[in-house]
């Protein structure tokens, strides 16, 4: 914001230099925008930026904050993770694979199912608010509640589900069943959140577009494809990114329901990082693992945003 009026605008020239009587007078001080940003900036710097940089520093040490010395190891933690046969590489990449499997299996369901639910909940019918609340309700439960619930529902020998099925399906102790369980419970648990976002997006689409489409003789399917989906595109991009990151950070479900069984096949990357850093107090190695996971996630998110932008452009 400049204080001086631009000289090329004759109508404002007469006002120039007369304080309190000009359209060009600053409406706020120079610092105002920064002051508005300050609370977030403080939190961001304090809880994201500084820890992230400190984490990088930690990852270059054999770090245990309780021991007197933190020996500098340079890139050794990273090298170890890429050296087959080292203490961590096998387990770490196995846990990354588990995270990858879970993400690939869960994200499509978490994008499509909530959309279906949102479309249904967007129609006018009696008791709509009630059903909106019902679908959102599981999301307010903590992971410990959901985990314990599903552990007993899905127990292979004494669980309710197998009791109804009449088969001893190993829902929590063998793959692929454990993946089915983890994905299904995650969809049940978090579907409401994505559905609410979709619902907000649906309500943003102008009803006139649907009317116009109807006048043109578009079927319901045509309307969905040519009005609803394009209207939701930015929302879908957002939901996809958020869901990808949430799935890649899965921890509580596997920690409680399968405990990594069978033999760590469902131990996710975050579970392994947590047990390395907080259980074994090897913060240096855990930080290195976190950085590798973070870099991969940044790459995937960037790719996802780029793809959706290209789709938008076309």
């Amino acid at each position: 914001m400049t204080v001086q009026a631009p000289p090329v605008r004759p109508e404002s020239r007469s006002d120039a230099g007369v304080p309190g009587n000009s359209r060009t007078i600053p409406r706020h001080g120079r610092l105002t925008p920064y002051l508005f940003l300050a609370p977030f900036a403080v939190l961001f710097i304090g809880f994201v930026l500084v820890p992230a940089i400190f984490g990088l520093w930690v990852s270059l040490h054999d770090y245990n904050y309780l021991l007197p010395g933190q020996p500098w190891v340079g890139l050794q933690n990273y090298l170890d993770l890429f050296t087959p046969g080292s203490r961590d590489s096998g387990d770490f990449w196995h846990s990354m694979l588990a995270t990858g499997i879970f993400t690939v299996l869960s994200v499509p369901f978490l994008i499509v199912c909530p959309l279906g639910v949102a479309l249904l909940l967007n129609r006018a019918f009696r008791g709509r608010s009630f059903f909106r609340a019902v679908f959102f309700a599981p999301y307010v439960l903590g992971v410990s509640v959901v985990g314990l619930l599903f552990r007993f529902l899905l127990d292979p020998n004494i669980g309710l589900v197998n009791s109804y099925l009449g088969h001893a399906i190993p829902w929590t102790t063998d793959v692929p069943w454990a993946w089915v369980s983890l994905v299904a419970m995650t969809v049940w648990w978090t579907l409401g959140f994505n559905a609410i976002i979709y619902l907000a997006g649906l309500q943003e689409i102008s009803p006139e577009l649907y009317e116009a489409a109807e006048v043109d003789g578009a079927s319901r399917w045509d309307q969905f494809r040519n009005v609803t989906l394009p209207g939701l595109r930015p929302v879908v991009a957002f939901v996809t990114t958020v869901t990808l990151l949430a799935s890649a950070n899965m921890f509580g479900q596997a920690f409680l329901v399968t405990k990594g069984a069978p033999a760590n096949e469902t131990r996710t990357a975050i579970m392994y990082i947590a047990s390395t850093g907080l259980g074994s107090n090897r913060q240096g190695m855990a930080a290195a693992m976190s950085y590798i996971l973070a870099i991969i996630l940044i790459g995937i998110s960037a790719l996802n945003l780029r793809l959706s932008r290209r789709r938008e452009a076309s």
Binding site: R151, L154, D155, P156, N157, I158, G159, A168, P170, T172, T173, D174, K259
Partner: peptide, 18 residues
Amino acid sequence: SPKNVGQDADYISLKNGK
């Protein structure tokens, strides 16, 4: 023993009489 005994299921089944 059944296969695939879940977490704590060995003890819960004792209490259930199984």
